[in-house]
Nucleic acid binder design. Structure first.
Lengths: 238, 238
DNA sequence: TAAAAAATCGAGCGTTCGCTCTATATTGAC
DNA sequence: GTCAATATAGAGCGAACGCTCGATTTTTTA
């Protein structure tokens, strides 16, 4: 699986994505016409990402959002009940979408391994980079109840990682020197790195598949040269 | 070097820390009495960390800060010229302090290696956890000019990492399968992980030195079991 | 201990915020 | 083309914001 083939199977068009978004929260919107709502929601959400990236969601005013999205204040409030809900919608839909896709992918034959899960996450975070970035940066503004729904996808990701690592350890493909939970915890920030510092890797000319390969090599092999591995075993093993 | 010995050498008392802070920005404060200023600055900064952690700096009002720190609005403004400057001071002082300490540590004999640099960063981020957390989460609110000063410590850290990795590669201790720059970039989020998700590791009962060890093992050895390394070499090497 | 200097107080200023509500414009069924 | 139904506009509301400044308290000086 590479990024291109992933996209062919799982990349929704903008229209498809926001149609799903609209239907997910359908009863919360006062706008009943799906065609209109989907189009307006797309501009609202995208304007939110743009403004939040430059400042932060808290510093973004609804007047700015109104101007950026081309809707009036009243028009805006046909789609959100309050500012906080806008942030909540983004978190909840992303979580739903990530879970859905991960479950789809891992159901495929030969796709329930470390490489596949890691690639799925990185590819997804590329398709929905503004969503992932927003969710990471603004997660603090959620109340305790709201967080529970929002981190479901995080928990699923972590449990999937632990599962495949444990299996690898049982099959003696993977070392047991670190607990699977520890490896999973250390792996997650390598996934976030891609969507948090995306500009950095673009600037360096590193493609997403090169990044995935680097992460896989890093996770599986580490830094140590095969030449010096035996020495290392003697010196550093606790 | 372990955390305890690091603390003995480099941990400043609260008073020492904020005395340095006061002197670093001395001419910006209207309060001339160092003893008074140091004490008040400590309460202001700590209140800022507390409130920003629960909401965000943008959502924190100066009335909240006034209440939390026990100073009046006017009292507060003897120490800051405006809200934005408070955030800027925190960023700038942290960057200064980190650079100072890293340079101190790496000057020591036998301390210019990967383990030492990584430990220094993780230990520092433990001593100054609220500072690191704040700087990471609120970096977006800085203007372009302000960012330049704030990320100096980040750039220093990255260049130190690259330096020692390159040296390790020349000495054939480290594999050259990944570029030093790539390894350094993937290492950094493992350092941030400790201060961003500190509660998680505390809850698990993982000590800071256990975390450091896990990171070192992860970086140097990766996941692959020595048993399967030779197979892996044949299958996965690009 | 009295006067000068320094530090703090907090009501109040102008502004902007999130949000509402009525008037208007747009849409779709017939 | 007409008329309900639906969707959008934007001035206006009270509240909260960042910040100021003369009054007051605390500290230092002599």
């Amino acid at each position: 699986m590479d990024y291109q083939s992933f996209c062919q199977q799982y990349q929704p068009s903008k229209k498809e994505l926001f149609t799903q978004f609209y239907r997910f929260f359908k009863d919360k919107f006062s706008v009943k016409n799906e065609r209109i709502a989907v189009e307006k929601l797309a501009t609202i959400i995208e304007a939110t990402f743009k403004l939040s990236a430059n400042q932060s969601f808290a510093n973004m005013s609804l007047r700015q959002l109104s101007k950026e999205s081309g809707l009036s204040m009243g028009g805006l409030y046909a789609y959100i009940q309050n500012k906080q809900q806008l942030s909540l919608f983004i978190h909840e839909f992303l979580s739903y979408f990530v879970i859905k896709t991960i479950n789809q992918v891992t159901k495929n034959k030969g796709c329930n391994n470390l490489e596949c899960i890691i690639k799925t996450h990185i590819y997804l975070s590329e398709l929905l980079q503004p969503w992932f970035f927003f969710a990471f940066m603004e997660s603090k503004n959620l109340s305790r109840d709201e967080i529970k729904a929002a981190i479901q996808s995080d928990l699923l990701m972590e449990s999937k990682l632990i599962e495949v690592i444990k299996r690898g350890q049982q099959e003696e493909i993977y070392s047991t020197i670190l607990k699977a939970e520890t490896v999973a915890s250390l792996t997650k920030p390598l996934l976030s790195e891609w969507y948090l510092k995306r500009w950095k890797y673009k600037k360096r000319g590193m493609s997403i598949d090169q990044y995935c390969l680097a992460v896989m090599i890093f996770i599986e092999r580490g830094l140590t040269s095969p030449h010096s591995l035996s020495e290392f075993e003697n010196n550093e093993k606790p």
